[in-house]
Nucleic acid binder design. Structure first.
Lengths: 190, 190
DNA sequence: TTGACATGTTATCAGTCGATAACTAACGTC
DNA sequence: GACGTTAGTTATCGACTGATAACATGTCAA
């Protein structure tokens, strides 16, 4: 297999592995096993575990931004039209069906004590916000949209949608937060 | 020193230590050093590292809930009065000046793959939501409030407030998200 | 044919990890 | 003053970690 192909394969495996344990909780050997290659090879491709995690995190942020850009490109967006915001929100919940993407994002956002990870997270968030902002909406509206997204992240990360029957308050918060998109996130793709 | 006093001291030290590295990224030895005791003693007090983290996380969630309860108890709360919601929001940002509390919460919310941590997170979130709900406001309003809080968590965790000059988009999101409370969070207490 | 380069591997290492066992010192009390 | 309890320690262990070095294999050009 070509180096580039193998690289992509390992990156995909690393996304799955890091989504489970986060940066600190995932060994390069776990990534290697997930990818079906030897551990030293993983290290050699990316130099260090940190460099690998940063690339995984950056790609995850890119995927979200690109999904928003796709929605905004496919049809005119009216910031005053709630239906348009619904479309954008649904695109996000569709993305969140990929739990690996979601969890990598959460782990990245939480690892603020590792400077490079924090910087990568800020850059990712900045670009996503800039994309939403580009609709021409007021900053407050874009900020509300992002905040809503962060709540969805947290709820999925703590597996709220998988334990709706155990806690009435949490179930109320979950159904309220996801709204019409609840059926989507109940059927994850990973 | 009495066992209970020492226990509290180690719990406080563990909060500081876990706030930096999270569950997986913090060793019991790091906690021990922070507390000024031996590593085996830390393990013996709490049984396992996981039990220690769960206690730290639960206390963090409790502190937030209690802060909300205090605000709601000190004066009548009118869910239709924006000033009352401002008071509640300010109480939260005041809490977030304690970065250890914030980071422990973030790490807990992200560690969804460890069942016990996810369960503890759900319980914490549930109780906080229930407290906000108890104001008699519509679920949607309580949910918006929580979502706003999650965004503040993420922004602080990725150190957005410490790098306002590096990125105009992120600075806009930050000032918009924190609003009047921005001066507060710019002067953390830990 | 040979030699450079790319794609991998196995072997190994020094350090770290959570946990257990065994020991020590102080204190209260009968 | 012997004894149980509490509060702590040092010593040690087997497992794991990220990284490096050395080696193997295959491909393609001169």
């Amino acid at each position: 297999m070509s180096g580039d192909d193998r690289r992509e394969l390992v990156l995909a495996a690393a996304t799955r592995a890091f989504s489970r344990g986060g940066y600190a909780g995932t060994s390069t050997d776990a990534v290697a096993k997930e990818a079906g290659v030897s551990q030293p090879y993983v290290v050699r491709i990316f130099g260090t575990k940190l460099a690998l995690f940063l690339e995984v995190l950056e790609r995850s942020c890119d995927r979200i931004r690109e999904a928003f850009e796709a929605v905004l490109a496919e049809a005119p967006f009216d910031p005053d039209d709630d239906d348009d915001w619904s479309r954008l929100g649904l695109a996000y919940t569709e993305l969140l069906r990929d739990r690996d993407l979601l969890m990598v994002m959460m782990h990245g956002f939480s690892a603020g004590d590792v400077d490079e990870i924090a910087r990568c997270s800020r850059q990712g968030m900045s670009r996503i916000f800039a994309t939403v902002r580009a609709t021409g909406c007021p900053d407050e509206r874009a900020q509300e949209f992002i905040a809503q997204g962060m709540l969805l992240n947290v709820m999925l990360s703590m597996r709220a949608t998988e334990h709706l029957d155990e806690d009435a308050d949490l179930a109320a918060l979950t159904t309220c937060a996801f709204g019409d998109a609840l059926p989507f996130v109940l059927s994850p793709i990973s």
